[in-house]
Amino acid sequence: MGADDDYRLKLAAFLATQPVAKGVTTEQVLTARTRDELGITSLNMIVVMLNYLKDHTDGSVALRPEWVPRMVDVDGIVAVLREIDASKVAQPQ
């Protein structure tokens, strides 16, 4: 299992906590190529990311406009999660 799979599992775990992603399974996240295959609209994906930022960065990282077009496919979503986590680590404590 590689780093991308680890982040797909992280995405699946977080989606399981989100009402807008109700019914999305870990298996779907691991195999889907696009956000549409997960049944998540672009607006709902933004809501999910805002919730992720709130829960994982305590507001120290803001949603970046350049992330939005990357959230069309699952690999892009995973890359955004990785960036958020890296930004959080880079923040002064």
Rank of each mutant, 00 (worst) to 15 (best):
V29T: 13
A13G: 11
P19T: 03
G23L: 10
A32K: 02
I46Q: 13
K10M: 11
E83K: 03
Q91S: 13
G39R: 06
Q93W: 12
D4N: 12
L38Q: 08
A21F: 09
A21D: 04
L38R: 08
R64W: 07
Q93C: 10
F14K: 04
Y7Q: 06
Q18F: 07
D55P: 04
L30K: 15
K54D: 15
E37K: 02
G59A: 04
G2I: 06
L38H: 10
Y7W: 11
G2H: 10
L63K: 14
R64D: 09
Y7L: 15
M49A: 00
Q28R: 07
V74D: 06
Q91H: 14
A12S: 12
L50H: 03
A90D: 11
A21M: 12
T31Q: 14
L43D: 13
V29M: 09
M49T: 02
Y52G: 01
V61C: 05
D58W: 06
T26Q: 11
D75W: 05
V47A: 09
W67F: 11
A32D: 14
V68N: 06
L63Q: 14
N44Y: 05
D58A: 15
R33D: 09
L81R: 00
V74L: 06
E66G: 12
P65N: 11
I84P: 05
A62I: 10
T41M: 01
P65G: 10
M45Y: 01
V80M: 08
V72Y: 13
A3G: 03
L81C: 02
A86D: 08
G2P: 10
A21Q: 09
Q93K: 14
L50P: 00
K88G: 04
M45Q: 04
D85E: 15
W67I: 06
L63C: 13
V68D: 01
T34I: 03
S42E: 15
V29L: 11
I84L: 07
K22E: 08
P92S: 05
T34H: 03
A12H: 08
V89F: 13
P69N: 07
A79T: 12
D85C: 10
L38W: 06
N44L: 04
Y52D: 00
L11C: 02
G59C: 07
D75K: 15
P69K: 08
D58V: 05
I77Q: 04
I84W: 08
K10G: 00
I46C: 09
E37C: 01
L11A: 02
T57A: 04
V80L: 08
V61D: 07
D4P: 00
R33H: 11
R70G: 03
P65H: 06
A62M: 12
D55G: 03
L53F: 07
T26P: 04
K22T: 05
